[in-house]
Amino acid sequence: MEILTLTANLDALAYVSAFITAGAERSGLDERATWQVQLAVDEAATNIVQHAYAGTEPGTFTITWEVQDNRFIVTLRDHGRSFDPQEVPTPDIMSPLEERQVGGLGIYLMTRLMDEVRFDFDPQEGNFLTMVKYITAPTRDDVVVMPLSGRVDAVTSPRISAEVRDHIASGARYLLLDMSEVNFLSSSGLRALLLIRKELMTEGGELRLCSLQEQVYDVFVLTGFTQVFAIHATQDEAIAAFGQGRA
C-alpha cells in the first residue's frame, strides 16, 4: 500500500494528483480511467481542504492506494469535523440555470466517476472515505476469437480452415483459437493449424492459441511446435499479446 500524508491546504492538491495519477498508471488503469480517478480524488481532497478544518488550524489528511484483485482502492482519512454525505443535497442536473444549486457537484462527480464510493465516520478515527475503480482489461475490437471444440483432425480441419479464410476475407488479421473444448489434435489437425498460421502471417496478421487441454498441449511439446505457435494460458493473456511483436 502506498501512503501519503499532507497538511490540509490548497498546496496539497497538486501532490495528491501526482500521487494518485502515478498510482493509477502503475496499476494498469487506462488513460481514461486514470483521468476519472484523478478527478474523483481531487474532488475528495478539495472537500477536505475546504471543509474538514474550516475555522481551525488545518490538520493533516492521509491518502492511500492499493490494488486488490481487479480493484484500485483509494482511501482518504482526515480528523476534521465529521462529514455526513446525506447533508449534501444531490444536485438536480436537469434543473435550469435559475434554479440550479451551485453546491454538491464534487460528491456527485465522485459517485459518477468511481465504481464504489463509501463514507465512514468514527469518533476516534475521523472521516474515512473509500473509493474503488475496477481495473478492466483494455477492450479491443481487432481480435477475432474462434472457439474450437471436440476433435481437430483430418475430418474437422477443412471446416476450420474455411472459417478462418472467411474471417481473413472480411478483414481479420488477429486470430485467437480458443482450444479449451478441444480434446484431441491429430497430425492432420496440426498441419491445418500451421497452414492457418502461415496464411495469417502472409497477410501481416497473427495466430495465437489459448487454453489448451493437457493432452493437446502434449502434442505441441512432442512435435517441438511449442516453439512455433504462440500458446497462452488464458484468453485475456492472449488478447493482450496481439500486436506486441511476439507471435
Binding site: 474532488e43 478539495t46 440550479r100 451551485v102
Partner: peptide, 19 residues
C-alpha cells in the same frame, strides 16, 4: 487541461450574475 467542481461553480455563478 482540467476542470473540477470549484471551477464549475465559478462559471455557473458568473453566468447567473451576468444574466
Amino acid at each position: 487541461e482540467y476542470v473540477s467542481s470549484p471551477g464549475l461553480r465559478v462559471l455557473i455563478e458568473a453566468r447567473k450574475r451576468a444574466r
